[in-house]
Write a protein that binds this DNA or RNA. Sequence first.
RNA 1: GCCUCGGUAGCUCAGCUGGAUAGAGCAACGGCCUUCUAAGCCGUAGGUCUUGGGUUCGAAUCCCAACCGGGGUACCA
Length: 596
Amino acid sequence: MKIENLIEAATQKALIDLYNFTPEHGQIQVQNTRKDQEGDITLVVFPFLRFSKKPAEETGSEIGGYIVNSVKYVESFSVVKGFLNFKIANEYWIENLVASYNNVDYGVNLPGEESKLVMIEYSSPNTNKPLHLGHIRNNLLGFSISEILKVNGNKVIKTNIVNDRGIHICKSMYAWQKWGEGKTPENSGMKGDHLVGEFYVEFDKNYKAEITELIKKGLSKEEAESKAPSIVAARELLLKWEAGDAETVNLWKKMNEWVYSGFDVTYRKLGVDFDKIYYESETYLVGKEEVLRGVRENIFIQKEDSSVWADLTDDGLDQKILLRSDGTSVYITQDIGTAKMRYNDYEIDKMVYVVGNEQNYHFQILAVLLDKLGFIWGKDLYHFSYGMVELPSGKMKSREGKVVDADDLVDEMIQEARDMSVELGKLESLSKEEAEDIFRMIALGALKYFILKVDPRKNMMFDPSESIDFNGNTGPFIQYTYARIKSVLRKSWENNIIIDENVKINSLSSKEKELLKRITLYPLAVKEAGDNYSPAIIANYCYDLVKEFNQFYHEHSILSEPNKDQLNFRLMLSATVAEIVKKGMNLLGIEMPERM
RNA sequence: GCCUCGGUAGCUCAGCUGGAUAGAGCAACGGCCUUCUAAGCCGUAGGUCUUGGGUUCGAAUCCCAACCGGGGUACCA
């Protein structure tokens, strides 16, 4: 039983007995005591003054006296203004430490709600360009949230909807036909997704030039945009593709394959994976059928030009197009089809879409549309809406080539980790392979932590001219502390020191106490992260814990401690911190090197 | 225009279900490697929490308004 809960329950009784007042749920505020104050746990007594009709100090003293007498582990109290601070016995914190030290599942498989089957869609790339930093944020969030939901007791299916058809890939196809000169990943030595992306940029350059040309000739902007020869050609390709034209379909397959093999490399590098992959080319027709069923059942309306619309004005939204006048499907059509297929394939309790906040409106509409089509789960879909990664120059734009490429960024960071390690003279005793593996872990640790430590809902800034740090509040700092603890533990084994859990500690230093308190908070952090879909909560927890540990580490010697109980206690404390930090960082998809 | 999200130190971010003197990191300056890994630790400096009202014992946190910025807004994805 958590001490906070015991105090809360006792406070409830105290208020009834002392002031004949029954507090409502949430009226009793129990919190950790500020670091600079005497005590461990604080009860805020301001809200009770109306009922005690006595000054704050007096009220606090009365309640404090009551609780010291009725709650085990509460040793004493002090009152500062309206704050009632309790001192908790060392035994409580130490018992907690021993329990978490012995429990390999500490903070894993949290008890509580029944297990749900959650499907998480993330990544969802278009196949016409390589992944960039914005996609990295998506992938890391999707993966991390999956891990967090798992330890919170859910079953998770990670899914990826690959947007493999549509005008975007046709643009790359057209450009390749026109200027490709038979270039392939094999004969150019280029990664497939990068090659295809190059043609996408090429297309856009050309397209823009054509538009400028046409506007000069007197066309309006809209006319020019739709009449430019390259866009006309791309549209033709799309129509041919939909008609199943063999040559077009073959080119489409070939170029998509290039992209997939490129993506595989990037995904592997990032350490993300999927349980089930859907392809838009296999779901969009299902979506189209659903829309046509909606027309037959008078849920949607078809206009004279044969375009199909949903009237969502009763739901406070606008009218939304579902099929173009030429009968082709739009973006949202395939999402309807994909959703239907998923619910046919799995008994999903909850569907989570990890998609950027620029699509908030899209998902609002999707929920309503699915509901109108009679899917009972439609309203329950959860759009996990994360913020954009911004560059100092603004938003990333693939078309203009204004992006931070995912592969380049990872490679650069590995190189930097390598350089730094050499400069610091680390890992010299290891083999090349072992060292390389650690450089990779450090580089990815830095990248992942950099992205996941910020609140996922907020936009974040990335300045390419300043590389991602390895010092301070970073992944490598946490990895480094972990490696040092591991090193201490290795040395203790070498000295045949065996950790004995039966420790008798009379006094704790403030750093030790602080660490013990934080250890008890880990399961709460995991729960909170799950409730809020926020890896950042875990990241910040780990940082605080590690920061605290470093201070402890510099104030106390561990291995040279002569007192047997102290030695045991400190080793156990260190080992527990290391395990918790490792678990937490693993939830972020960050690997922990044993040395660095 | 309308909808929506945001504005905290020079920079990047925590803190936001109201609680005590608003916290980290980076950058700047100073100190600490014969002692378990210095990717570390300690110290100095840096703030009208965009502004103005309101709610109350108490507001960075909740409400209203203004200003500034991001995103969206019917045949792009």
